[in-house]
Amino acid sequence: MKSAPHQRLVMVGDRDALKELLRLRLVECGWRDQVKIICKDLIKENGQDIAYDTLLSTVTSRARSLVPDSVKKELLQKIKNHLMAQEESLKS
């Protein structure tokens, strides 16, 4: 059970839009290619039989730090704006 604001976003349908935006930004800034390279390196080290879960867990920590600040800030700002807009619409 996620938090209330999260559920609110899902209910209104903003979450998908935000996700698409984030995906687009990450592809644009080359983050996806960096992640790919990290994955390939890991696969080379551990052989092709590496499990998806181990791959994801090892990649995640490094990938998070690689996200550009501008993208992170933009996304945070947008999410906040959406939440505020929801609040306004509920209050009125």
């Binding site: 938090s3 999260h6 996304l75 945070l76 939440l83």
Partner: peptide, 9 residues
Amino acid sequence: ASKEIYEDL
């Protein structure tokens, strides 16, 4: 909340 949502996304 917004940070949490961002991490999730």
